[in-house]
Structure formats: structure tokens, C-alpha cells
Write a protein that binds this DNA or RNA. Structure first.
Length: 293
DNA sequence: AAAAAATTCAACCGCTTATTT
DNA sequence: AAAATAAGCGGTTGAATTTTT
């Protein structure tokens, strides 16, 4: 019934490969009796106690002990048998959290997992890799990305427009003060760069709107909502959380060049200095965004 | 209908960090 | 204080399953 798998056999005395229901039972029983931890003693203590030895379910001479290394036992418990694990698919809400926290912390799966009760680091890691890893972005994340960029653009073009208007206003007033009743056509020529930029962004924006991906996006990707609300738009939050690390575990690269976009897009390290969200950092980010687009 | 390709995810490995002896 | 042992972490693997051709 088992051991039909290519890799189900023994190596150095320890069984390896997929766990059987029987093995699970032994491990669960072990934890019930001895608690979590001391995994190396599982093999010694399972199935050898008087209750199990005399249990008629085990034929005489059959070694009922669990022939698994401590490491394997711990893994099985932590990732699969623990009763507080949440089974079933990752919910859209959870996905949203994963995306956000990964943007913040990179591949620190166990850190991310702490914010997702009932989910293991392994599970989250798998989820991330299968859904958001470079090369094969799912349709969902593709849409999410588009939305993210769109929001950024909307914001920027609004900013630019406002800037241009302010500037124009200022110049007009200045001119009024300087020499009284003069022309007003000059103002347009003096802010061509900004208005042009703003116009370009409006055009890009409209292009995106034509594609009309919002409805689909919302249906599939909750991140759309979080984009506006949390860390990615609030440098204060992001930099505060980001600075909390950097003490010891810094050898983890935040975003090894092969994962795409999000890490570098959302992680504001090195872009935002002391919580300031100025135009330069914005356009820097914008450039990064465009590079991926 | 079946073969091939793609995806999923449980479990492994090697390494680092923490705890115990 | 340091060596040994245990726990924890993240990357990788590959059998099983699902999807595509």
C-alpha cells in the first residue's frame, strides 16, 4: 500500500519520503504524551511504551517505533500535523497579506507566516513561488500589477498637474506685481516641461483605462485594495517596519534578482530616506515600475 | 483518448541560530 | 567557555496531480 514510491525507503536507518497514516498516528501520539519538541527522541519513545508494545495491533516482533529522524518528525508536525493549522486554500485576504509582507520583508517566509495564523512558512513560500515568481506571473498578479501601476500614474499625473497649475499661478501673480497690465500668454511657455509630462501621463492613463481590467482585477486580486491603503503608499509605515530589521539577519537578500517586480517596487528601502516621500523618490519608483511594464 | 507539459506541494538538504551540557 | 545537540530557516527537488495539446 505504501513503499511503492520511488523514494519511500530507508537511508542510514531512517525512513524517508512521504509519511503514512500509521506514522502520523505514532507522531501525534508522541506529541500528545510528551509535548512538542525533543524530536530526536521520537524514534526511541514511540511504539516502545508498554501500552503500544502490548497492543495487539502490532504483530510480535514488529518494531512499532517511528523510524524517522528528529528533523523529519519536527517538519511533519510543524507543517502538517499541528492541530492549529488552517487547511484549505489561501484566501484572497491572506494573499493580500502575503504580497504586502513580502514586499516589505522579502523572502523571510517565517516572518511572514507569523502574520498568518494557521499557515506555515512552507505553505506561504510555495504559494508565492507558484503564483508570483518571475517568469510565470499568473493572470491575477498580472492584473494586480497593472492596477498598481495605474494607481501610481493617476497619482503622479494628478501631482504633476497640480504642480503645473501652482507654478503657473505663482508666475501670473509675480508678473502682475512686476509690471502692471501686461500679457498672460507667457505663462504657458515657461512651464512646458511639466504640462507636457502631465499630458503624457494622462494619455498613458487613458490607455490603461481602455483596457478596463478593474472589474476582473477586483474579483481576483485583493491586493488592489491594499495598494492604496497600506505600506506601499505610506512610507512612514514601510520604513518603520523595514528599519526594525537590519540588525542581524541581513545576509538574506531582500529580493534576489530573480524574483520580479514587487520586492523592488514596493520596498522603499533606499528610495525613501527618512520617511519623506518626495518627487524624486516617486519618479525613481516610477522608473522602476516602468522597467517592469 | 492518450501523451506531454505544466503545476503543485510535501519533504528533503544544507546552513544558521539557539539551547543545552 | 566551548563543544554538542536541537530547532529553525530558506532553497530545492521530484512524485503526484492537473491541464493542455
Amino acid at each position: 500500500m505504501e513503499a511503492q514510491f520511488g523514494w519511500g525507503r530507508e537511508e542510514g536507518g531512517w525512513r524517508k519520503g512521504p509519511w503514512t497514516a500509521q506514522e502520523d498516528k505514532l507522531l501525534v501520539e508522541y506529541v500528545r504524551q510528551h509535548g512538542e519538541g525533543r524530536w530526536n527522541s521520537v524514534a526511541k519513545l514511540t511504539g516502545t511504551g508498554p501500552t503500544l508494545v502490548t497492543n495487539p495491533r502490532f504483530s510480535p516482533g514488529f518494531d512499532a517505533g517511528l523510524k524517522r529522524s528528529g528533523k523529519s518528525c519536527r517538519l511533519r508536525w510543524v507543517n502538517y500535523l499541528r492541530p492549529d493549522l488552517k487547511r484549505g486554500k489561501i484566501t484572497p485576504q491572506e494573499e493580500s497579506v502575503i504580497l504586502e509582507l513580502h514586499a516589505l520583508w522579502g523572502n523571510r517566509w517565517s516572518t511572514i507566516a507569523r502574520s498568518l495564523p494557521g499557515r506555515t512558512d512552507n505553505e506561504i513560500k510555495n504559494y508565492w513561488r507558484t503564483h508570483f515568481k518571475k517568469g510565470k506571473p499568473s493572470k491575477n498578479i498580472e492584473r494586480a500589477r497593472a492596477r498598481f501601476l495605474k494607481q501610481r500614474r493617476e497619482m503622479q499625473s494628478r501631482q504633476l498637474l497640480q504642480q503645473g497649475q501652482d507654478q503657473l499661478h505663482q508666475q501670473q501673480q509675480q508678473r502682475h506685481a512686476d509690471h502692471d497690465g501686461d500679457d498672460e500668454a507667457v505663462g504657458e511657455a515657461s512651464t512646458p516641461a511639466i504640462s507636457l509630462l502631465a499630458q503624457q501621463h494622462e494619455e498613458e492613463l487613458q490607455l490603461l483605462q481602455q483596457q478596463d481590467m478593474d472589474d476582473l482585477l477586483f474579483q481576483f486580486c485583493p491586493m488592489a485594495a491594499s495598494c492604496t491603503s497600506s505600506s506601499c503608499l505610506l512610507p512612514g509605515v514601510a520604513s518603520a517596519s523595514a528599519s526594525e530589521e537590519g540588525t542581524s539577519g541581513d545576509h538574506h537578500q531582500l529580493d534576489g534578482g530573480d524574483t520580479w517586480g514587487w520586492g523592488s517596487l514596493w520596498n522603499l528601502d533606499g528610495v525613501v530616506d527618512d520617511g519623506g516621500w518626495d518627487d524624486t523618490s516617486f519618479s525613481l519608483l516610477q522608473d522602476q515600475a516602468l522597467a517592469f511594464y
